[in-house]
């Protein structure tokens, strides 16, 4: 049925607003919808042609009306398909934007497999601890379509450009009001040595530190540390 595919896509778009990760791009569905739209366009052209002929010799008024109605519905469907596609892509683009503000590097194919394995064996994976409130926490590059990858890169460029006007300000920092400059943090993942103005500490899992918040903001966003 016409429009069913578009509906599927909007449902998918609605679903992904609630996810913390961007799911696979629905290239098949998108392609099918584009095809359907083009088919509809051919229909519309045919109907218009038919209509013109019927107008020349108005023998059957009933048929003319049927034709007009069909043409109208066809046009509506095409527009609806377009809107579904736009809505889907826009939702994904918004997710990508949101992710870009987080300052984290996207996950490349090779990384994601061991990462998932580690999460399964680990009882406290950092990702699942994040409450599902619809905000992006990670992004797999292999889930993006080619055009979206391009978009991600350009948007990152735009952001760097915009941020460069406010050098003293960490624009992608937390949007929660700050309460203390020093906070207690717990290390969630092993990592390298971290150097701060006040000294050096090593990222060893389950250890705790008392550090300056602005120094570790990025590490919290990247999931290495947790504020306690």
């Amino acid at each position: 049925m016409f429009g069913a595919l578009g509906n599927k896509l909007t449902l998918e778009a609605k679903r992904l607003t609630k996810l913390s990760e961007l799911p696979q791009y629905q290239s098949d569905l998108v392609r099918d919808i584009v095809k359907e739209t083009n088919d509809l366009n051919e229909d519309a052209e045919f109907l218009t042609e038919q209509q013109r002929q019927q107008e020349l010799n108005p023998s059957n008024e009933e048929e003319l009306k049927v034709n007009q109605c069909q043409l109208f519905v066809t046009h509506l469907h095409m527009r609806r398909n377009k809107r579904c596609l736009l809505a889907y892509e826009r939702t994904r683009a918004n997710k990508i934007d949101e992710f870009c503000w987080l300052n984290i590097d996207p996950i490349v194919d090779t990384d994601s497999a061991p990462d998932k394995l580690a999460n399964n064996t680990d009882s406290t994976p950092p990702v699942s601890e994040v409450p599902v409130d619809g905000s992006v926490t990670r992004l797999g590059l292999n889930n993006l379509s080619h055009a979206e990858e391009e978009y991600l890169k350009s948007y990152q460029r735009i952001l760097v450009n915009y941020k460069s006007h406010f050098a003293d300000l960490d624009l992608s920092g937390s949007l929660e009001p700050p309460s203390n400059i020093f906070i207690d943090v717990r290390v969630l993942k092993d990592g390298n040595e971290v150097q701060t103005e006040y000294g050096v500490f090593n990222l060893i899992k389950d250890s705790q530190f008392y550090v300056r918040k602005s120094d570790v903001e990025r590490l919290i966003q990247q999931g290495y540390l947790e504020e306690i």
Binding site: V30, I33, V34, T37, N38, N41, M78, K82, L85, L86, E89, A93, S145, H146, A147, E148, E150, Y151, S154
Partner: peptide
């Protein structure tokens, strides 16, 4: 650009 590359260029 994203819209165009993804589907709009293939549309009527």
């Amino acid at each position: 650009q994203l819209y165009n590359n993804s589907f709009l260029k293939k549309m009527p």
